[in-house]
Amino acid sequence: MNTTTLFEAPGPRGRRRHRVYEVASWVILAGAAYVVIRILNKNGAFDAAAWQPFGLWGVWRQLGIGLLNNVRAAVVGMLLSMFFGCFLGWGLLSKRKMVRYPCRVFTEVFNSIPVLLLLFFISLVLPAWGLPLPDFWFLVVALSLYSTVVVGDLVRAGVQALPHGEAEAAAALGFSGFQSMRLILLPQALRMMSPALVSQMVIVLKGTTLAYVLGGYFELLRAATVLGAYYSRSLLQAQGIAAITFMLINIALSQIASAIDRKEKQRYGVQPVALDE
């Protein structure tokens, strides 16, 4: 909101009052920070011994491998879900009820299932059906099932946001339904969706940490916990580093998403497509 309309520019007395409030809130924040640091310090969180493992190259290597595994699962999951999501979106747009309704049901169902439960389900049921995959694939399958549905809905929204003339012109030029989708509608829709896709990447990356429960997949959170088992004093530090790493990556991705968003708006004057979540 434009705060200057809610509060008119303060006069001299108002400015003075605001300055007092500002100082007061700084004091409160600093006090809170002091309490946190004191608790951390009292329990030896800043002791050299607790940070000592982080002087070792191998420790960072393990954490790095963990992060790499997160990113790998997220990227593979995202690519798969973009591929299948395009088809799902196409199905959602189909004129035939026989195609559209099953796609709708599929979307609603997988939109409602928590990824974690899906992960449990897949990791217990697939081996029982004689598909003993490594944990990596359990994670990727669960994430991409969930994400396909989101991407599919995005594709639907993106194509519907295009002017009708696009599809009609393609039909008039003799393109088949598939050709028109692949060559004309999808490229434009994907372009409009790109900020939402990057945000989806953030969600998928956050989702990869669920693999923690599988135990067999060495992702960053698991790596931090394993580290804590070796160096019992450093568990908190390791997990804190994991949390901060995720935070930084996700902030960066969100920034990229909004940068693309701004650029698209500037260049085409169009509102990029987004689902509200």
């Binding site: 809130s25 924040l29 608790i39 951390l40 009292k42 329990n43 969180a45 953030v202 990356l205 956050k206 989702g207 990869t208 940490t209 669920l210 923690y212 959170l221 916990t225 568990l235 908190l236 997990q239 804190g240 994991a242 949390a243 995720f246 935070m247 996700n250 902030i251 969100s254």
Partner: peptide, 30 residues
């Protein structure tokens, strides 16, 4: 302060927050 809160808590995956809170904080005596 509000903006910082949102940046932090929205971007740390919830499993990480959960594990940190449940297994991490007891190390601090909380």
């Amino acid at each position: 302060a509000a903006t910082a809160y949102i940046l932090v808590f929205r971007n740390i995956p919830i499993p990480v927050q959960m594990v940190l809170f449940v297994f991490g904080l007891p190390l601090l005596g909380i």
